[in-house]
């Protein structure tokens, strides 16, 4: 965070907050500002004078296509999600901040995620104030804040059957090469099971935008996802 950028932006926020139609309450922006300073500002700047640092500037992040900041060197994974159609909304940002790799497997953002939904809402309320039209966010129903994928501990604890996973995997290997090549289509060989499960559930919940994967994951049961995760993790 560049010195000075934050206070200026906060002043801006006060002016905007006074507009006749107030933005919908989604969290405590002041608390969010403190969270930002503590957890994000080492890498990200936000505000009118913000520039790209280790991470891209977050000014105007809402409504922006993932990986769309031309001056920032994104991971291949983030660029791919962007071209697949991932756009930053309250919902997708919430998911990303909760567990970055569930949404963008190969993101370079080394942030383990923020479990507390209230903290995330506060942070997003803060970031929202650096958008052009804060009161238009969320665009529609406030339920957009619902956190997905909502992975219950019993889903995460399913032990997959690798033999079943091997059969199911024959459907994957039409496109994803077992030898780990990743031309045009990412490799899934040797993925940690936890990441695999999170990613598949994110497709199943249509949080990740790719239509083929939404369809493929959409008809897999929790057990089948676990079986595939166990199998692909075990591949040499």
């Amino acid at each position: 965070m560049g010195q000075g950028a934050l206070p200026l932006a906060l002043a801006l926020f006060v002016v905007m907050g006074a507009s006749p139609v107030a933005a919908e309450e989604i969290g405590d922006a002041a608390r969010g500002a403190k969270l930002f300073q503590r957890q994000c500002a080492a890498c990200h700047q936000v505000g009118p004078e913000a520039v790209n640092r280790v991470g891209p500037t977050l000014t105007g992040i809402f409504g922006r296509r993932a990986g769309a900041n031309k001056d920032f060197n994104y991971s291949k994974s983030m660029l791919r999600m962007g071209s697949d159609g991932l756009t930053w909304t309250l919902k997708s940002l919430d998911t990303y901040i909760e567990n970055p790799r569930s949404l963008v497997s190969g993101t370079r953002m080394s942030f383990r995620g923020m479990d507390d939904p209230v903290a995330r809402s506060d942070l997003l309320a803060f970031l929202r104030d650096y958008s052009d039209q804060p009161r238009d966010i969320p665009e529609a129903e406030p339920t957009a804040l619902k956190t997905l994928p909502d992975l219950a501990p019993e889903i995460l604890s399913i032990k997959g059957d690798p033999e079943y996973g091997e059969y199911l995997s024959s459907e994957c290997s039409t496109c994803h090469q077992r030898d780990g090549s990743d031309q045009g289509i990412p490799t899934i060989t040797n993925w940690p099971a936890e990441d695999f499960v999170a990613a598949m559930h994110a497709y199943k919940a249509k949080l990740r935008p790719h239509p083929v994967m939404q369809m493929m994951a959409g008809r897999l049961s929790n057990e089948e996802i676990a079986a595939l995760a166990a199998y692909f993790e075990s591949l040499d």
């Binding site: 077992r178 030898d179 990743d182």
Partner: peptide, 21 residues
Amino acid sequence: AALRKATYEESLGWYAGITAD
């Protein structure tokens, strides 16, 4: 154009994948 290009690149990946399969 970005999405169409990604779809094309995906098809190249698919060709490599299915022929290897």
